[in-house]
Amino acid sequence: MGSVSISHLIIFVASLLVAASVAGTLITGVEQVSSSVDKQSQELTRQVDTDLVVISDPASGAIYNDSGNDTTITLLVKNTGRNTLATDGSDLDVLLDGNYQTETETAVVSGGGRAGPRERSRR
């Protein structure tokens, strides 16, 4: 009789251990998924909050400067969204005729902290 209750006890402890490890794995998995969902929602919110408008005046001829060998394209970009973007332009990528531009200079031309940076792209 004693051997039966001892084996019952062993099976009981073993089943508790198995159940605990199953529950632990479940909780860890769900927490990982939750943290990904959280990060993705933050990223999505940033995307929804960001808005840009190119405000250069195409009729003025001030965009393309071809005097001499120093050909530059000056684009004025206004941040019209609610999101703050880095003033050094590290948040912005410039494509010119489909080509990624690496030699770009960015300067903020108006104040207020939320103003649009001035994108200066060189080719």
Partner: peptide, 17 residues
């Protein structure tokens, strides 16, 4: 006892998750 004990543990785990 083993069945109901482990069921309770898994149930609590499910609730927390």
């Amino acid at each position: 006892f083993s069945v109901s004990g482990s069921t309770v543990v898994i149930l609590i785990g499910c609730l927390i998750a």
